[in-house]
Amino acid sequence: MTSNLDALLTALYVHLDDHVLPLAQQRPRPGRRRLLTDAELACVAIAQVLLGYDSERRWLRLAPARIGHLFPRLPGQSEYNRHLRDAAPALQAAAMYLVRALPTWHERLRLMDGTPVRCGASRTTVNRSGLGEVAGYGRDASHHAFYWGAKLLLVTTAEGAVCAFSLAHPKELDERKQALHLTHVQTLAPGPRPIVCDKGFAGAGIEAAMAALGHQLIRPTRGDEPEPGVKVFPSWLRQRIEAIIWTLKNQLGLERHAARTTEGLWARVCQRILALNAAIWHNWLIDAPVKRSLIAYDH
């Protein structure tokens, strides 16, 4: 099997259509039948972000020349946008299926971190945006800056595949509450796992709650702690999850999502995470030396 975008889309479509998103399980909907099935839409959406097209309108103008030999029927921009928003649960299910198919799913170690997803930079946007359900004012401690947007929390394997993720309002849920909610509603892995995180997850309450679930939090010690817990912290693991977040936000375009509604933002987050997991999954199939590399699929 070759390491290029066509091979990735072909292998992914076969797996999704056979095991995850078969046509027989899709609910009938009123109106005209859509041009793409959910499995086809997932592949087209992955190709969009891997090739670096942030604009859906521009992507659909160029898609026939790039992937038209694989998907000869492509919808217009409005139908593509509506279908992508409606198919967000299918994209999330596909991303979780792929991470469970990886050999590293059964490894014990997990990485966890949160990052802001900025949604606007003006007061007019705040007042008129349809993102009010999930977006609010928050502070990015890493960059010492305030922002208006949502908080994305990720739990990943050590190689970079996303095991669980959630979006939250930065004012309603801080990182610790969001992490507890995420571990209750999504499965991080079978059995207890040590989770590497940062100082923002410090606290007796969250550590006790995570311990009750079987997860041990490994974090750097704070200066005000009288009895530091972990004296030698694996800082290289923190750098790794920062690199994973950079891949999602810059290389896959999450920083330039251009979403205007809560449903659109969630669909774009699922689209980027599915693209990352799909690339890692395919790199395992072809035995690529670097599993998180996207170089073979971005041209």
Rank of each mutant, 00 (worst) to 15 (best):
A211Q: 12
N250E: 12
T10G: 02
F71D: 00
L265E: 03
G264W: 00
C270I: 10
Y147L: 12
R118Q: 10
F233V: 03
Q178M: 15
I195L: 06
L265Y: 05
D287Q: 13
A275Q: 03
P228Q: 09
N4V: 01
A42I: 05
A179K: 03
L16G: 01
A150T: 10
Y53C: 08
R238I: 03
A95Y: 09
L36V: 02
A258Y: 00
L74D: 02
L74P: 05
L217A: 14
Y97S: 11
V290P: 02
A258P: 02
G229N: 10
T115Q: 05
Q77K: 14
C43L: 00
E40P: 07
S235H: 15
I273Q: 06
F201C: 07
P192R: 04
G200A: 11
R34D: 15
H215C: 14
R66M: 11
L248G: 13
I245K: 08
R176P: 04
E159D: 15
A202N: 09
C270Q: 05
P64Y: 00
A288Q: 13
G138R: 01
A267E: 04
N4T: 07
A47H: 01
L41G: 02
W266S: 07
N277M: 06
L252M: 12
A45S: 12
L213V: 04
D54A: 05
V155I: 14
L35Q: 08
Q26P: 09
W59Q: 05
P22H: 07
D198Y: 08
N283P: 02
M210S: 07
Q216C: 14
L274A: 09
M210R: 01
F165H: 13
A161F: 04
V155Y: 00
T156G: 02
V20E: 07
A135R: 00
S55E: 06
L36N: 04
W246H: 10
R139I: 06
W59P: 02
Q251R: 15
C163A: 15
